[in-house]
C-alpha cells in the first residue's frame, strides 16, 4: 500500500489505519489522541481565531512544502494580531493516488513547523476525492491564539509619524515557487522564506506595545499590504527604495521574469507600523531574533496623499505603489 485510495476516506478500516499509522505519530498530543469529534479545552483570555486553505502548486518547493506552509501561515495570521498561537486544526483533502510517502514527508514537515512554533494540532479531518477532482493535496488549517497584552493591532490603526518596518528581504517565497513550477533554474537556488513569526512578534511586543499594525505580506507582496494599510487607516505612506531589502538573486530572477519584488509573495516576513519613539527598540529586538535579523525601517506614515503609497526611488524620483492587479505575468519582450 503506497498510494492513497478512495477507501482511505471512507471512514472505515482504512481510514482508521491512515490516522493511527500516519497522522497520530506526527501530531500526537493529549487532545488529539482521544480521537473524539472535537477537542475540548479552557481559555481564559481574549482569543484570536483564524483559518486559511493551502493549495500551493508545486506541493514541494525549495525551502519548504505545503505542510510547513499550512502550519506557518495560520501561526502567522494569529501572530499578526499580536496573539500567541496555541491550538490548530488540520483538514486534508487528498486526491486518490497521492503517494503516501509524500504525505508522510508533508506530515513530518508539519510536525517540525508546529514544534518550532510551539503549537499543537488538536483536531483534524481527512477526505479523499476521485483522481482529477483535486490537485494532489489541499490542506486547511484553523487556529486559536490568546492575546495577553493590552494591545490594539489593526490595519485601521496606523498613526501619522509611524515608522514602517519590514522583517527581512522580500520576494523569496514567490520566486522559489514560480521557479520550481516553471522549471527555471538560477545560479543560486532561491529558497522559500516560510517561517513561523510568533516568536518574532512576541519579541517585538516585549520591546514595546506601541505597534499599531502588523501584517505578513503573502499574496500580493509588500506593495499590496502597504496599500491596504494606507486605505484602511486613511493615511499616506512613503517608502524608500534604497532601504527595502531584496537579495541579489531575487532581484535578478525578477528582472528575467519581468516581475517587481514588491509584489512577490512572502511566507516568513512581516511588515509593521510602529510609533516613532518605539521603532528603534522594536528594530533592535527584531534583529536579535533569527527571523528578523535583516529587519529594516523602510519608510513612514504621513498625513499627505491619504490612501496612497509613494516610493522614493534610488535616483530621487518618486512613483506610486498600487495593489497587485491580477496575476503577475512574465513579460514577452
Amino acid at each position: 500500500m503506497d498510494r492513497i485510495l478512495l477507501a482511505h476516506g471512507s471512514g472505515g478500516k482504512l481510514s482508521h489505519e491512515l490516522i493511527e499509522k500516519y497522522f497520530l505519530p506526527y501530531f500526537r498530543n493529549p487532545f488529539l489522541e482521544l480521537l473524539n469529534d472535537q477537542a475540548v479545552f479552557d481559555i481564559h483570555s481574549r482569543v484570536a481565531f483564524t483559518t486559511d486553505s493551502y493549495v500551493v502548486d508545486p506541493v514541494f518547493f525549495p525551502g519548504g512544502n505545503i505542510g510547513d506552509l499550512a502550519i506557518n501561515g495560520t501561526v502567522n495570521d494569529l501572530a499578526m494580531g499580536g496573539a500567541k498561537p496555541l491550538y490548530l486544526s488540520a483538514g486534508f483533502i487528498l486526491e486518490e493516488g497521492f503517494p503516501i510517502k509524500e504525505l508522510e514527508d508533508i506530515l513530518s514537515s508539519m510536525k517540525d513547523a508546529a514544534d518550532s512554533a510551539g503549537v499543537i494540532v488538536v483536531t483534524g479531518d481527512t477526505k479523499v476525492v476521485n483522481k482529477g477532482k483535486a490537485d494532489k493535496i489541499f490542506i486547511n488549517t484553523s487556529g486559536i491564539g490568546v492575546i495577553e497584552k493590552p494591545i490594539n493591532i489593526s490595519a485601521h490603526n496606523l498613526k501619522v509619524g509611524d515608522k514602517i518596518i519590514i522583517s527581512g528581504p522580500i520576494g523569496e517565497h514567490g520566486i522559489a515557487v514560480m521557479a520550481k513550477r516553471e522549471g527555471l533554474e538560477f545560479e543560486k537556488e532561491i529558497r522559500s522564506d516560510t517561517a513561523p513569526l510568533n516568536s518574532l512578534v512576541s519579541d517585538m511586543l516585549s520591546a514595546s506595545c506601541d505597534i499599531h499594525a502588523l501584517r505578513d505580506p503573502t499574496r500580493g507582496g509588500l506593495a499590496t499590504i502597504l496599500k491596504e494599510f494606507a486605505i484602511s487607516s486613511n493615511v499616506g505612506i512613503v517608502i524608500y527604495e534604497d532601504k527595502i531589502p531584496v537579495k541579489d538573486e531575487v532581484r535578478g530572477a525578477c528582472e528575467i521574469l519581468g516581475l517587481d519584488p514588491l509584489f512577490v509573495a512572502n511566507e516568513g516576513r512581516l511588515a509593521a507600523s510602529a510609533s516613532p519613539d518605539a521603532a528603534e527598540a522594536i528594530l533592535k529586538a527584531m534583529r536579535r531574533n533569527k527571523y528578523g535579523k535583516d529587519a529594516e525601517i523602510i519608510g513612514e506614515v504621513v498625513s499627505e496623499h491619504k490612501g496612497v503609497v509613494i516610493l522614493k526611488t534610488l535616483i530621487g524620483g518618486k512613483r506610486i505603489i498600487d495593489m497587485l492587479m491580477g496575476e503577475q505575468l512574465p513579460r514577452i519582450c
Binding site: 526611488t313 535616483i315 530621487g316 524620483g317 518618486k318 512613483r319 519582450c333
Partner: peptide, 16 residues
C-alpha cells in the same frame, strides 16, 4: 521601447 517607458516611470525620471 516599452521597457524604457516602465523604467522611466519606475525610477521617476520625468519629474527630475
Amino acid at each position: 521601447c516599452g521597457t524604457h517607458t516602465v523604467a522611466i516611470f519606475k525610477s521617476g525620471i520625468r519629474e527630475l
